[in-house]
């Protein structure tokens, strides 16, 4: 019983962490049709922001607040310098963002060395939960993820920015003809997506070793979740639950490597059977 409960919580924890990472990716892709291969490195920058803040004597909470701001600004600069030159050249956006990811990773190695850092986490106690004890910080991560999902829903369905963004997703040129500045919207969206990645990096940092390779490890499950779910918010939630659930279960019962293989095999089979993801086009809202 305990095992099942812990397993369920672990799976939920991982799934929500994936959603946290995937959200920025989905938003940027939905609006700009850009697959941001540098998303993992933006995540990385979020974690290192926290490292820097803690080294400078600032606390965890300050780092958590600064990370999305710093990484959002980085996103703004990247959009202006690079991304906007390759819009409408789909494969080139993948390559360009990928080149960015290499450069960021190297810059981090240059600044911080290849070794890993650990981050002091707050909330170092267990919470009694239906008879088992679960780390409070993991519950905190889940809370942040849920909050981010709600925030995104609110922004997209209850604000003018969200309406404009949805309009651009649905029909870019018509939205422009109605007077919506798609250029500014693109920039804001990329920055917003980057900020989410930065937040995710800072939130996840205490759970993992902060090193230059950490971005990739999270990027792939996020991508697989998006692919299996079919994109969009609901699709991503579904995909993340599948990926998170399968990965946690197999990792606990067998080994983490086997879990990755199984998740990947699942994703490939789903892609073969449902090329548009499990939700088909319907997930794209």
């Amino acid at each position: 019983m305990d095992l099942i409960l812990t397993l369920g919580l672990d799976a939920l924890n991982f799934a929500l962490a994936i959603v946290l990472v995937a959200m920025g990716l989905v938003i940027i892709f939905g609006l700009m049709n850009v697959i941001n291969m540098a998303h993992g490195e933006l995540f990385l920058l979020g974690a290192y922001t926290l490292v820097v803040v803690q080294q400078a004597g600032g606390g965890f909470w300050l780092g958590l607040i600064l990370a999305p701001i710093v990484v959002g600004l980085v996103g703004l600069v990247l959009e202006e310098l690079i991304i906007r030159h390759v819009y409408r050249r789909f494969l080139d956006t993948i390559l360009a963002t990928w080149g960015i990811s290499i450069a960021i990773k190297q810059a981090v190695i240059l600044g911080f060395g290849p070794a890993s850092y650990t981050v002091d986490a707050p909330l170092q106690f267990g919470v009694d939960f239906l008879g088992t004890t679960y780390p409070a910080y993991r519950l905190f991560i889940m809370g942040v993820a849920v909050l981010v999902i709600l925030l995104t829903l609110f922004v997209f369905f209850r604000t003018r920015f969200g309406l404009a963004a949805r309009g651009v997703i649905a029909n870019r040129s018509m939205a422009a003809c109605l007077g919506i500045n798609t250029r500014r919207l693109d920039r804001a969206t990329f920055a917003f997506g980057a900020a989410l990645a930065g937040l995710a990096g800072a939130v996840m940092a205490p759970q993992m070793s902060v090193d230059p390779q950490m971005g990739l490890g999270f990027l792939i499950p996020a991508f697989l979740a998006i692919l299996t779910g079919g994109g969009g918010l609901t699709g991503t939630l579904l995909g993340a639950s599948l990926v998170g659930g399968i990965d946690s279960t197999f990792a606990k019962l067998w080994s983490p490597v086997l879990a990755q293989v199984v998740v990947f095999a699942m994703a490939i089979v789903v892609i073969r059977l449902f090329p548009n993801g499990l939700l088909g086009g319907r997930g794209r809202r």
């Binding site: 030159h85 390559l95 080149g99 960015i100 290499i102 190297q106």
Partner: peptide, 13 residues
Amino acid sequence: LLGLGALFVLCVI
């Protein structure tokens, strides 16, 4: 590698 990454991005653009 940093320079190579940057060169790569420029080349793509």
